[in-house]
Design a protein around this nucleic acid. Structure first.
Lengths: 208, 208
DNA sequence: CGCAAGATTGCATTGACTGCAACGTCCAGG
DNA sequence: CCTGGACGTTGCAGTCAATGCAATCTTGCG
């Protein structure tokens, strides 16, 4: 991957990475709002104008790679089992992503998560991304059940899943003691999310 | 309410309303990004500086009154019935809000909803507001079940409800034919949301 | 009337973001 | 090898949102 590009592209990738690293370091030490683009570009030793060649906005530098494994999710959604309900399919897709090799509690993930949770502007940006992804999930789900599922129901279903996860994750990260416990054991995070989903859905089903 | 304030406050309120009206009119005709604060203040016949006396940001002028009836929600949540589960309480609170006299599909609501759905910057802002509200709902729910409910479960539960609603509402508004049908009959919106919630939750409960 | 509080305004400044044109470097075809 | 075009980078000028400060004008009250 990285090896077979020309010197030109390697150089470009290096400046991009320098910007990301500088930005995260500065955001973590000084705070997001207190860090200017000029600060970041100075630390990365490039011109301020260059920042916007690589990123569309200040917050975009933090969302370099997608946190959600959309492709994997879509792949699972593409093949519903016989007699599998949409909700069951969604749950199975979620499990696939959860048990893939995604790093959920790595070092840089922690720093990023802290920044996002602490900065209102970043919170909004992160959720915006998630909502965009949500739309694609809905589309994939509708493709899986083209005749039997109506759009509103599909969107509500996906919204419920995403909402459950966001609710759980938000609380897991914001509670300091819980966050510390999770940081110690990455496996714990999977278990937490697992029980959050199953227990929540079970309770929701028992309202009728 | 409006009558017993002095001339001073009435004037201030009038200025504020003039700004809101001018902003919505201009946003609707020219688009949000293409409308500057200077345009709005010129149309409202006040100084540009005055805008920020009334609103903290450009998007705030659209979120003048909260779309979610938080107080009502909190009031219901404060009095759980005996043997009522958290999920049941949440559902009951949602019903209360839905059947209050809130105008869900009024003219200005439609314009606002369209603007928010079409403008990325506004989507982010709306979500920020919803997340703040969500946090308060979680707190109210935890207060209702201080000993038996753990924070992560509560947050996941509320996230599921809010997520379900956002998913349904988004699709209801973005589908043009559906939106037209709803605009004709305001009562329809309530029914639509009602079935979205109950049917979604029922399906989620049948995943185990 | 006269004064204090509050509403509005002007001015200056910061910082995100954009369009444009220039300048250099890399890479391919001859 | 070397030359021309593609591409990464940069500087410059400009727009616009947002903020702090001080001045001005209006309202309400003694």
């Amino acid at each position: 991957m990285t090896g077979n590009m020309g010197l030109r592209e390697r150089k470009k990738a290096r400046t991009r990475q320098a910007l990301v690293d500088a930005a995260i370091a500065l955001f973590a030490s000084k705070g997001y709002d207190e860090t200017t683009i000029a600060d970041v570009t100075a630390a990365a030793d490039v011109s301020p104008r260059t920042f916007f060649v690589h990123f569309a906005s200040k917050e975009d530098v933090l969302f370099d790679d997608p946190p959600l494994k959309l492709e994997l999710l879509a792949a699972v959604l593409a093949h519903p089992g016989p007699d599998e309900t949409p909700a069951q399919l969604l749950l199975r897709a979620f499990h696939s992503v959860l048990h893939s090799d995604t790093d959920l509690m790595g070092q840089s993930e922690r720093v990023r998560a802290d920044l996002i949770l602490q900065t209102p502007a970043l919170r909004a940006g992160a959720i915006r991304k998630v909502l965009e992804d949500q739309h694609e999930i809905v589309r994939a789900l509708l493709d899986a059940y083209p005749d039997t599922l109506d759009p509103v129901a599909a969107s509500a279903l996906v919204g419920a899943m995403v909402g459950t996860l966001i609710g759980a994750i938000t609380m897991l990260y914001s509670d300091a003691t819980v966050a510390a416990r999770l940081a110690a054991d990455p496996q714990q995070m999977r278990a937490e999310l697992e029980t959050a989903i199953t227990s929540t859905w079970h309770q929701l089903g028992a309202t009728g």
